[in-house]
Design a protein around this nucleic acid. Structure first.
Lengths: 146, 146
DNA sequence: TGAATATAGTTGATAAGTCAACTATCTCTT
DNA sequence: AAGAGATAGTTGACTTATCAACTATATTCA
């Protein structure tokens, strides 16, 4: 089990973080599965689902269902790409835009909590290592800024 | 989103790792949800479910269901603790014992894959940081050896 | 002793993710 | 142009996990 340590802590840390996010976003009717999607759309909307899959190494079914939840709370619309009718382009609604500042605050607060007591150097190494782990596992995460 | 980096990579790495483990353990009818439980029982069985909850900050329903799966494939039995009839003590079967060596090999191989290309020092820092993150998140992971 | 409370485990509802099968559209090759 | 194969998205079945409600047993304390 000593040998299993990295996998073990990935599991524990991920669950704990997801729980925290769920609590902090419960009022907004958002849960952790929608966070990466929404955060990405705040940076750039009008993208298609496949793009989101690639950015996070997420299954297309997971992306489709996550977006459906955002759609149900009126945060996004899907429009068929006129240039390729297989694709659906995802656009944020004004309701989503109104939530952006609050969303950022919540995310920043949770990231602060995660990082508390850690030095800049430790965090930098951690990020380098976890990216390498992702790539070792075949999760070719799109590098949108480092 | 730069600020969200740690949470993002925790999610990506954990999913990728779980997928890998599922593939490697599929033949044995085991999936990633049973790994921490089984690995712990190989170290020490005759413990109760609550102990497993505490070690991994896992919900008791999750532990109960994970153990039910191990029970279905004939890997464990549950016996009521004669000293406290609320508790059920979990024991490995001989079928589980027969699988131990193979299980260890699979786990070690997956951990090797995770770690490839990383220095001892990077891994040490990574483990220190992720443990700190767990504790920042309130996941008070029991320290069974470091 | 007996009532209130705490603890161990189970069950039901729900969320998030995987895989595989499916539809629809597009592209490539001949 | 037509058919084969690739790509985008949806749906169904399944796994892991959460929370809340429940049962059963233990403990505490009045």
């Amino acid at each position: 089990m000593t040998d299993e340590a990295i996998g073990k802590y990935l599991s524990i840390a991920r669950r704990a973080h997801a729980s925290l996010l769920d609590k902090q976003l419960a009022e907004a009717d958002i849960s952790h599965g929608q966070i990466l999607l929404l955060a990405t759309l705040y940076q750039e909307d009008g993208i298609c689902q496949q793009t989101l899959c690639q950015m996070y190494n997420l299954n297309k079914a997971a992306v489709g269902r996550g977006l459906n939840k955002l759609s149900k709370i009126g945060f996004i619309t899907k429009e068929i790409d006129p240039e390729d009718k297989r694709k659906k382009l995802i656009y944020l609604t004004s309701k989503a835009r109104d939530f952006e500042a609050e969303f950022r605050e919540i995310l920043e607060a949770s990231e602060e909590k995660l990082r508390s007591g850690l030095s800049e150097e430790e965090i930098a190494t951690f990020l380098t290592v976890i990216k390498k782990i992702c790539s070792n596992l075949g999760a070719n995460v799109e590098n949108q800024e480092g």
